[in-house]
Amino acid sequence: KELVLALYDYQEKSPREVTMKKGDILTLLNSTNKDWWKVEVNGRQGFVPAAYVKKL
């Protein structure tokens, strides 16, 4: 599985998104969309802005 690092805090704005804190390590589930990547964090799956994370 591929991991990404949260570069910034992000507060979810819809049920399809997830909240993350700067420094969190997230599991990358899908990065086919250039703007929104699907990740898993704390057992929850959802989208975060691709610009807010970096592949490890």
Rank of each mutant, 00 (worst) to 15 (best):
K1H: 15
Y8G: 06
S14E: 10
V53T: 05
K34C: 08
L29N: 03
K34P: 14
K21L: 09
W36Q: 03
Q11I: 15
L7Q: 05
S31Q: 10
K13P: 05
D9F: 05
W37I: 05
P15K: 13
E40P: 00
D9P: 06
S31W: 10
L56R: 03
G46K: 02
T27N: 11
G23S: 04
Q45I: 12
K54F: 13
R44Q: 08
D35K: 11
E17F: 06
E40Q: 10
I25R: 06
K13E: 09
N42Y: 11
K22R: 13
P49H: 02
S14M: 07
L7A: 04
K54P: 01
D9H: 06
Y8E: 11
T32N: 14
L7G: 02
L7K: 06
Y8I: 13
T32Y: 11
K22H: 05
K54L: 11
E12T: 08
A50G: 04
I25Y: 07
E17N: 06
G43V: 04
T27Q: 14
L29F: 04
W37V: 08
K22I: 07
G43D: 09
N33I: 06
V39K: 00
K34W: 07
Y8D: 09
M20L: 11
Y8K: 14
V4R: 02
Y52E: 02
T27G: 07
E40F: 07
M20Y: 02
D35C: 09
V39T: 01
K21I: 10
R16C: 11
K55M: 15
K1D: 11
N33D: 15
V41E: 04
N33W: 08
S31R: 09
V53P: 00
S14K: 09
Q45C: 08
V53H: 00
F47N: 04
W37T: 03
K54V: 14
Q11S: 13
M20Q: 02
G23N: 07
T27E: 14
E40V: 08
V18T: 06
L56M: 12
Q11C: 09
Q45T: 14
V18R: 02
L5H: 05
K1I: 14
K21F: 12
A6E: 00
A51Q: 12
D9T: 06
G23T: 02
E40C: 08
L7C: 06
E40W: 07
R44E: 06
N30V: 10
E12V: 07
Y10C: 01
L26P: 02
Y10N: 01
K21R: 12
Y52V: 07
L3Y: 15
V18D: 00
F47W: 14
G46N: 01
A6Q: 01
E17C: 07
V48G: 00
Y8M: 12
Q45S: 13
K55A: 09
N42M: 10
N33K: 07
S14C: 07
Y52Q: 06
L26Q: 01
D35R: 12
L5Q: 14
V39W: 00
T27C: 08
Q11R: 12
D9I: 02
Y52M: 12
G43L: 06
L26G: 11
V41N: 11
L29M: 08
L3M: 15
V4G: 12
A50K: 07
L5N: 02
I25Q: 05
V4H: 03
T19C: 06
N30K: 07
P15F: 10
T19H: 05
P49I: 02
Q11G: 09
E2I: 14
T27K: 12
L7P: 00
G23M: 03
Y10T: 01
V39E: 00
L3V: 09
G23P: 00
Y8T: 10
L28T: 01
I25P: 02
G46P: 01
S14P: 06
R16F: 14
N33T: 07
G46W: 03
R16E: 15
N33A: 09
T32G: 11
N33C: 08
L3I: 11
R16D: 14
A6P: 01
Q11E: 14
E17M: 05
A50R: 08
K1G: 14
L7R: 05
W37H: 03
L26F: 07
V39L: 04
D35N: 13
K13D: 07
N30M: 10
L29Y: 04
T19S: 13
L5Y: 15
K22G: 05
N30W: 09
W36V: 03
E2K: 09
D9G: 06
K22E: 08
P49W: 03
L56E: 05
R44T: 10
G43I: 03
V39D: 00
T27W: 13
T19R: 05
M20N: 00
A50E: 04
L3T: 11
N30I: 10
S31Y: 08
Y52T: 08
G46S: 02
L26M: 15
D35Q: 12
Q45Y: 12
T32I: 12
L3F: 15
Q45M: 14
L29I: 14
L28Q: 01
P15E: 13
E2P: 14
K38A: 10
Y8H: 11
F47P: 01
L3Q: 12
Y8S: 10
Q11T: 15
I25H: 05
E12I: 07
K55Y: 12
L5V: 14
E17R: 04
V41Q: 12
D35V: 15
R44C: 06
I25C: 05
V48L: 02
Y10L: 01
T19V: 03
L26S: 02
L56V: 13
A51N: 13
G43Q: 07
E2W: 15
Y8R: 15
K54T: 13
F47M: 13
Y10V: 01
W36F: 06
F47L: 11
E2A: 10
V48H: 00
M20F: 14
G43A: 07
Q11V: 12
M20E: 00
D24I: 04
A6M: 02
A6Y: 02
S31D: 14
M20S: 01
W36N: 02
K34Y: 10
K13I: 08
K38E: 14
K1E: 11
T19D: 04
A50S: 12
V53G: 02
D24W: 12
